[in-house]
Structures are given as C-alpha cells and as structure tokens.
Amino acid sequence: MLSIRNLHARADDMEILKGVNLEIPAGEVHALMGPNGSGKSTLAQIIAGREDFKVTAGEVRYRDIDLLELTPEQRAHEGVFLAFQYPVEIPGVNNVYLLKAALNAQRRHRGETELDAFEFLQLVREKMQLMQMDESFLNRGVNEDFSGGEKKRNEVLQMTILEPTLAVLDETDSGLDIDALKVVANGVNSLRDASRSMLLVTHYQRLLDYIEPDVVHVLADGKIVRSGGKELALELEERGYDWLQSGNAA
C-alpha cells in the first residue's frame, strides 16, 4: 500500500504541497480531484521520482519502502508507474524498443528471465488488441507525431504490459473522446486486482463512471481538504470546489 504522511514540497521558491496525507490500501482505486494549481500533478510526479521538486518534510512509503530514497528507475522496479499527463515524444526510440527495454529491466530486477522475442511480441499484441491500437504503431518513435488520444492510449498500453503494483494516472482522461475514454478505462480496469493500488488524477467525474473509485480525495492549495466515496465526485461536478475551500464547510 501507499502511505503519504505530511508531505511538503516546493518548486523553486513556491511551496506547492503543504502537508499531504494519503493512504491507498492494496486493491483500492483512489481518485484525486481538485482545482487547477492545487498540486495534483506535483504529487503524481513526486511519487514517480521527479527531481525538480524539493521535498521539505514528510514521507512517501510504499510497501514499507521509503520511495523518496529511490531513483525513478528503482521506483519503477518496485512496481511504481506514472501515466504522464503530457507523454514525452522521443524521436528515434521506437515503441517496441522502449517496451522491451522497460519490461526486461523490470524482469531482471525481479530475478525473472527476460522474455524471448516471440513471447514478448505475443504479449504486446495481446495488449494492443485490448487497447485497440494498430500494429504499425510499434515501429514508430515513442509518442512521435501521436495525437493526444494516441499518447494517452500508449501510456495505458505500457501500463498493461508492465503491470505495476502502484499506478498513478495523471489526467489520462483529458483530451479523450468518449470511445477512447472507454478503451482507456477498459485497459485500466483490466489491471484492477487485490494486490494493486491506483491513484487517478482527474478533473472530470466522467472518468469515474468507467473506472469506479473506492475513495475520492480533493486536493486544494496543497492539502487534502476532503475525502469521501464516489458520490463526492458527483457532488463536486454539481457544486464545484469553492464550497470546500471557503471555510471547510461540512
């Protein structure tokens, strides 16, 4: 499980996270909502190991490992995965190469044998079918000239292949039409199981119609100001965030 306690973080001179507390037990899916600039993406990136933010207090533990002590790649080896809000285009590195390098790096870490070319392709094809992606994509550069929707699909494809135990999805739903949203949700749901924790960062209740969260949290001004069941998302959709920020009503 993921356990974040009193996390404070800053970028340059600005304090962004001001004491975040968050627990995600194994097997649960939590949604993280909140107004723009509240620190949602910062939190997602700190979990993955982004070094641009300075953690000034608090801790992030996952399965009793102090994540903040690990490099991004070590975190990945421990089962952490971040689906990027803005997936990076990497011309010259093709998708199949990245998938293979990523999968084998993690298998080596876990002491498993690397997949041979046949097994690997079989796995990739199966997952691509799930994500309704065309095979031609394999030999294209990573995210190179992909549409916004294709990039998001690609993030979830990587996730279904790497099978992380802690997945953080940063606005994976933004920019998707309804059909693409269903495909992406389907991919995410295929990974739900009792050992896996997920954190969905989103602005829209819509995603949660397809991926039902166990808990919804609201992050505002660097703190979790409210947590509740999935009905909280519906309430936010109706009332916005102001009622939460102004004086911590209820």
């Binding site: 993955a48 190991g49 982004r50 070094e51 490099t71 991004p72 790649e73 975190r75 990945a76 080896h77 952490v80 995965f81 971040l82 990027f84 997936p87 990076v88 990497i90 590195v93 990245l98 390098a101 990523a102 790096a105 993690q106 870490h109 990573v142 990587q158 790497l162």
Partner: peptide
C-alpha cells in the same frame, strides 16, 4: 523530460 520518462519506465539513467 525524455530522460525522466525513460527512467520512470525502469530504464537506468546511464542506459537512458
């Protein structure tokens, strides 16, 4: 950005 992306996929810094 690309370096961080690759590292979050489990690829070591030198290899990335």
């Amino acid at each position: 950005e690309a370096l961080f992306y690759l590292r979050t996929r489990g690829i070591g810094e030198r290899t990335a």
